[in-house]
Design a protein around this nucleic acid. Structure first.
Lengths: 239, 239
DNA sequence: CCTACCGATCGGTAGG
DNA sequence: CCTACCGATCGGTAGG
């Protein structure tokens, strides 16, 4: 058993999650003393329809800038501009810069967990442990290096910028994500293919994968499938 | 062959390097029209004797604060206070905050490269590849997690805060550090113990090791020797 | 969501 | 290396 500084141990995904703002869904049970309204579902005004969109633009811009410059170096002005707004406007959607960072991480983890779950369910329960590990690694690389891959790198490298309460929230997500790896690693260890203690192996493996954010280039010769093959060979061999 | 975003691939050490300030070593060939000076080596004044010490205090404080809070979030005022100085005084020793960051990384890499070289030479050329890899991994963990381990984590996680010229300087150090791993990895690959392409393996292995900065705790049950055993088992098995 | 503004803090400098 | 200071920028807010 290894004591760890929470989180830091998982990693997750960033394709745009459908964001429910809540505010965009106008309340149907309006005050009864108002003038009569048209029946049926209230039509959304232009600004209501855009609410979710604007918010999403802020979150995506924040993810990109937090990743490129770091949390402290990316100003809320930069983020506003990236979303096509003026300086103070992000604070209409988020109460603080810190809340915006949290939202980037939360959405990233939610997406990563969802795609990991889908990848595992897609194989069925009877798949060989080695193939399950392949699916986990492949999904992890997709989440880190694939199409919309800013959210999880931000989570991985801006952890210290969260306050204690925020860390607890994200840690719950990363713990669940990590836990899904353990049955597969335990099975591979029992079969002799994985030759380190499964808990420590998980931390080392996550490190090997997460670090790819620092060196992987889409222009390079190594695709994500080939990279997955290499990682699999390194950790559990070729057969 | 894998194209990488330079650096990011190595890692190095932080125990205090004896810093030659140059300024501390008073020039013996003084102007000839000065009044006669006492013969022999000139005595250092109080401030001359302290010069190197003060500078080192700044660098060490900067390393600690850059690691704890990140480069952008650690102010030069914080650093001055950590070195027992007033606000503007670090700029007497360094021309900019950025130059201070560079110096932290440069010293860290110099120390790491030195201890790695010593570790390899200590074994001799005829040591088994597996034992050479053990020595490399053990030194790397020492550099990352050992006694004075702030310098290299700063280098690993603040790379993007350097400008282009600075990156080239540090990249030269990290490239040399990384290159020393390749003969050993090639040999292990040829012998069948390392089952991934050696270049890709090096990147994945460095990731696994470097990530330990995020989760390793000295209060935990795993010492650096045991951790080295686990990593070795994961990458090249137990025998 | 914009305009206009606030206090706080920052990296850096002159002058001693 | 300190004192005193500078312009710039920052996160955040009031008021519409």
């Amino acid at each position: 058993m290894v004591r760890v500084n929470r989180a830091a141990a998982a990693a997750v995904a960033p394709t745009a999650e459908p964001v429910e703002t809540g505010a965009a869904q106008a309340d149907a049970t309006a005050a009864p003393d108002r003038p009569a309204r048209p029946r049926g579902r209230p039509r959304k005004t232009h600004s209501e329809r855009d609410q979710g969109n604007r918010r999403r633009l802020i979150v995506e811009g924040a993810a990109r800038l937090f990743r490129a410059k770091g949390y402290a170096a990316a100003s809320t002005r930069d983020i506003a501009a990236a979303a096509g707004m003026r300086g103070g406007s992000p604070f209409y959607h988020f109460e603080s810069k810190s809340a915006l960072l949290y939202e980037v991480m939360r959405q990233g983890m939610a997406q990563a967990a969802a795609s990991q779950r889908a990848a595992l369910e897609h194989m069925g329960m009877d798949a060989a442990p080695r193939e399950r590990l392949r699916a986990l690694i492949r999904n992890h690389f997709e989440v880190l290096l694939g199409a919309h891959s800013d959210f999880i790198p931000v989570m991985l490298y801006e952890w210290r910028s969260l306050n204690a309460a925020q860390r607890r929230g994200i840690a719950r997500q990363t713990d669940a994500y990590s836990a899904e790896w353990m049955p597969t690693l335990d099975a591979l260890h029992a079969a002799g293919a994985l030759r380190a203690d499964p808990q420590t192996a998980r931390l080392l493996i996550f490190g090997a994968l997460n670090w790819s954010v620092q060196w992987y280039s889409k222009q390079g010769p190594l695709g994500l499938d080939a990279l997955t093959d290499q990682a699999l060979a390194l950790f559990v061999g070729n057969n």
